[in-house]
């Protein structure tokens, strides 16, 4: 697979003048493949949000380069190409909605891009159907639930026909119901439509859905690996102040207490299967 986003030796500090200013990002190298689902984990202040703002040229590297589809994000002439290729969804659903009506909100992106009115309508309908909010197209945005607002925000990005969506803790302000809605939407966009997803999250259960997990600490990537491998190393997760998914913790504690389980579970079904196997072996 060709690399879609290339981050080469990226360093960033908010203070350009002082040479001794502390770097928020301290030499990041990362490749993101097309169609991939990448989760980024890290403690507060580790530089996760700063990193993904580099992927759509909201921030430019102090040192190093970021390439999207081979285009350097420092190339000012291509700024809007990059931003329409890589969309960003923020944490607070209330703060990123521009319009009062759902369909106007979704149309905002393509309108900015100067798309012809007729094809804006097609894109809006398509995007709303993808996030399963089509029947709400005439409603007011303030009457929606948090999960619905966040799905509208995602639809607003999809309407720009991006290849990649960045999500900066999109579920942290939602209730469990809304969290599930948004995660299902993200998963379906990745699986069924091949859209590259970069998800920052604090919920390990969400990260478990990713193809790869990148762990950031103090502006550096300390580890990139598949969830199955990372979650099997409980001591490692503890070291970087990351919580452990409930099912992983359960299996881990059972093992510690002497149960001879050798597999590792990522979700409830796997966990049940492992336990079933164990009970069957007892008989």
């Amino acid at each position: 697979m060709k690399n879609f986003i290339d981050i080469v030796d990226l360093k960033f500090s908010y203070n350009n003048e002082g040479n001794n200013a502390k770097n928020i990002l301290n030499g990041i190298n990362l490749n993101i493949k097309k169609g991939e689902f990448l989760a980024i984990l890290g403690a507060n202040g580790s530089g996760k949000s700063t990193l993904i703002k580099h992927l759509n040229a909201m921030l430019l590297p102090t040192k190093g380069n970021v390439f999207v589809n081979g285009i350097n994000t420092k190339d000012e002439g291509k700024l809007y190409d990059i931003r329409s290729t890589v969309g960003l969804v923020l944490q607070n659903p209330d703060n990123q909605i521009v319009a009062s009506i759902v369909e106007d909100e979704v149309a905002f992106g393509p309108e900015n891009l100067g798309v012809a009115p007729k094809s804006i309508r097609e894109r809006v309908d398509m995007a709303l159907k993808l996030v399963d909010m089509y029947e709400y197209r005439k409603s007011t945005t303030y009457s929606l639930s948090g999960g619905q607002k966040q799905r509208i925000a995602i639809a607003g990005i999809i309407a720009m026909q991006p290849e990649c969506i960045l999500l900066d803790e999109p579920t942290s302000m939602l209730d469990p119901e809304g969290r599930k809605e948004v995660l299902d939407t993200i998963k379906s966009l990745n699986k069924n439509y091949g859209i590259t997803i970069v998800l920052i999250t604090h919920y390990m259960e969400e990260a478990a859905n990713a193809d790869r997990i990148a762990i950031i600490n103090e502006g550096k990537i300390v580890r990139i690996d598949a969830p199955r491998i990372i979650f099997s190393e409980v001591a490692f997760l503890d070291k970087y102040q990351l919580s452990i998914p409930t099912v992983v913790e359960l299996i881990h504690k059972l093992k510690l207490n002497g149960l001879p389980l050798n597999n590792m579970a990522l979700d409830e079904r796997e966990c049940v299967n492992i336990l079933k196997k164990y009970f069957n072996s007892l008989e």
Binding site: R83, G87, Q96, I97, V98, E111, P117, A153, I157
Partner: peptide, 25 residues
């Protein structure tokens, strides 16, 4: 804080003022 977030979100969605902008309706 909201204004900052909104400006960020608008920039992410390629808002660049009225020039070259179309309208769905």
């Amino acid at each position: 804080r909201r204004a900052y977030d909104l400006a960020l979100a608008m920039e992410c969605r390629c808002y660049k003022g009225g020039e070259g902008r179309t309208c769905m309706k």
